[in-house]
Design a protein around this nucleic acid. Structure first.
Lengths: 210, 210
DNA sequence: TGTACATCAGTGAACGCGCGTTCACTGATGTAC
DNA sequence: TGTACATCAGTGAACGCGCGTTCACTGATGTAC
């Protein structure tokens, strides 16, 4: 039966929310439309009244998750005395590792995005750029010409640290914790000014097999 | 019909090889047993003569991939003048990014391992430790007490860089290349001795929400 | 404000399909004598 | 070396199941008058 426009919007939001949660927890291929619909308190038919396909729902769920996650980072960075340490405290934490369902979708789905289609990858890139901008805003000590490079590396390392810590946690929680501590401490050093004597471009640039 | 023991071993190896390739390319959930068997030149029944289940095949395929990948790194490190730059050249490259099928399984499957069972996670940890040992062997300039910490961070960052570069490549190849270059250059700096004046433990240790 | 009716969000049965797994069978291999 | 036969890797039909998607239908909503 028909419901109010307001209720319909709520139902749609519930579908996106539950899809985001379940897809991050168990992967897009790992959860069926019936389960997502049920979690939102609906039948699968209702899902198809709101979205043309499961893939369309997945893309919207990824986008919504990135929105939430990006907004959190932006809020941290907009504080006048915001530092890289603040961002790292938030991102590279046991809480984040253990919160697969509502954590950053970039970390939850990094290695799966490569297999999705271009529209999903485009949303991923948006999220990546947003996160990079947040990190870059805290790199006042780093010379402008290497700031972006540093920010990209820190972002890739943050995502890698969470993904790897999660993969290790099931069989070796100690190692998982160690990875988080190590990344938390070491990455902060990349936010400081570059080492004085050892920035030798010729050495740094040596790339033989790239 | 029965085949020679030698031929049976070849068939088993082909199943493991094709499973490793396909699972890395499209995910474990994304490929069926029929396709793996066909790729190995067999029917799916033959697969069940060799392995008790698809999951068992997946675990063996991951193990074999890690073996190959780890052996490559070990070969680089055992050279007397091996440096972190050599490892990074090998790992953080466009070639590696574009070779999903035969690249490092840690990077191909990082965010999926968290959803597999403990035995798969245990194999992942083995591979991680092997890779960390290889990196650590090149950190002669880093003080022994922080060497392991650095190595763990570099490994997480390498894996993150490849995973993120792959996810971005479908919609923004320029950004993907930029991520690889940035990580390649920046991570090498973590292999050098720590910054002289700025290693302030109290500051470094500031972790509020971990 | 009250009535008539078009709209459409949501229901639930049904669709074809491919999944992982099982199993009776085949027939060359490899062993026992 | 030759023969008899147990072994077992591999075949292919069949299993139940859950998948994503479709569709005829329902009935409260919201609009037109």
């Amino acid at each position: 039966m028909k419901v109010t426009r307001e209720k319909a919007a709520e139902n749609r939001a519930a579908l996106v929310r539950e899809a985001g949660r379940l897809f991050r927890e168990r992967g897009i291929d790992g959860v069926g439309v019936a389960e997502v619909s049920k979690a939102a308190g609906l039948t699968h038919g209702a899902l198809y009244a709101q979205f043309p396909s499961k893939d369309a729902l997945a893309a919207e769920a990824l986008g919504a998750g990135l929105e939430t996650s990006g907004a959190r980072l932006a809020k941290i960075v907009e504080r006048p005395d915001a530092s890289l340490a603040d961002l790292l405290d938030h991102y590279i934490s046991r809480r984040h590792r253990d919160d697969l369902a509502f954590g950053c979708p970039l970390a939850a789905s990094a290695s799966e995005i490569a297999r999705q289609d271009r529209s999903v990858s485009a949303r991923f890139v948006e999220g990546l750029e947003r996160m990079t901008a947040a990190v870059e805003a805290t790199l006042a000590d780093v010379p402008p010409e290497t700031r972006h490079q540093r920010a990209l590396t820190i972002v890739a390392a943050e995502i890698g640290a969470i993904a790897v810590a999660r993969a290790a946690a099931k069989s070796d929680l100690g190692l998982s914790n160690e990875i988080l501590s190590a990344a938390r401490i070491t990455l902060e050093q990349l936010g400081k000014e570059p080492r004085q004597g050892s920035v030798r471009k010729t050495r740094t640039r040596r790339r033989t097999s790239l």
